[in-house]
Nucleic acid binder design. Structure first.
Lengths: 193, 193
DNA sequence: GGCGTTGGCCAACGCTTGTTGGCAAACGTA
DNA sequence: TACGTTTGCCAACAAGCGTTGGCCAACGCC
């Protein structure tokens, strides 16, 4: 180690290569899933030797962890007016998914890798359920309401970004917000049916 | 071949083994996905030699095809009263998923295997879209409305049967019908928002 | 300019996978 | 009882996987 402050990584000569590997890994994981996204294939995409991947990320699990390191946050959703929260949430998730392919990767991998599934669940547990508790009519129903919201959002992500059903891919973003927004709104705030 | 009619398979001494293999395969595919469900593991579950699987089902793809051979049908949904179709659909899908683990298998595998994804899509294409065309207010919107229904149903299946989020597993069946039914009803019949 | 450090490649390892072919026992029929 | 067929197991194969260690060249500091 050379001299540098504690919280700051030294700029390494290999940073460009590291980034290339990470980008290739994200793409492969997102399109192929965990098993089919082999280190060799990722290395080939990055025009690098497979052993470099090991040197920089330890092992395949470490590479995946680094590739999907971001955590989707529900930011100031709490400040939205209560009757607009459904649409705001739909818009937010849509934007998130359209621009971050690591979410597609996380989803495709989570279906077979419990560790990735747990990462997805943590979003539900730590963000969606508390939100439902704050905003919903009955705190005891927060779990159920949050679970329904998760299923609505992830269902759309599944058909649109993972399975790529043409009918789902063809939906325009505004169209999605117009339909999904009221669903989320109802799941969060409507009285028990 | 011994003498028998054309459309009827002869009863073979190995039918029990074949069934055992198929059951083990369904379970493994449903819980592990395509890659992690190895022929060796399936054979071990069925207490049989791996080579038997090959002899009876040709190869791994053939085994999977045989294991998920059922096609989910939307039966007399058309005869339901128009304002009850959402709840009927929710009930129908729920029952289907609770008792057929091949649907879970198809879903978990479809995420990584295009062939299985196409099988899922065919249900949307050949059953859900025609239904939406018949029942919806505007035939031109049938694709979009059917895609939204698929995302709602598959989203619940994803969180409940595949990812097994505790909050989703905890939902009681009647609760699901009460919440999901109106969503499907709206996706199918409500005027464009 | 010399020398430790870093970046990169090559070759190989141990292991698991799907898949194959041959051999032995059990069976059904005549 | 004799014989062809079916059922099952064993051993092995080639290929692909994640992973390792050693070697060489390029770099950066003194």
């Amino acid at each position: 180690m050379t001299d540098r402050t504690e919280n700051q990584q030294a700029a390494r000569r290999s940073d460009a290569t590291r980034a290339t590997i990470l980008a290739a890994a994200r793409e492969r994981f997102a399109t192929d899933g965990y098993e089919k996204a082999t280190i060799r294939a990722i290395a080939r995409d990055a025009r690098i030797d497979p052993s470099m991947v090991m040197r920089y990320y330890g092992n395949k699990a470490g590479l995946f962890a680094a590739a999907v390191a971001i955590g989707p946050d529900l930011p100031g959703l709490a400040v939205e007016p209560r009757e607009e929260i459904g649409r705001a949430m739909a818009r937010h998730f849509l934007a998130l998914w359209e621009e971050n392919e690591e979410l597609t990767a996380l989803m495709r991998v989570g279906v077979t890798e419990p560790h990735a599934a747990e990462r997805m669940q943590s979003v539900l547990r730590e963000q969606l359920i508390p939100l439902a508790r704050r905003i919903g009519p009955d705190p005891d129903q927060a779990q159920a309401r949050a679970a329904l919201c998760a299923s609505a959002v992830l269902g759309l992500a599944l058909t649109r970004y993972v399975l790529r059903f043409p009918a789902s891919v063809a939906l325009r973003p505004e169209e999605i917000v117009d339909w999904l927004g009221p669903t989320l709104q109802r799941y969060l705030t409507a009285p028990t049916p």
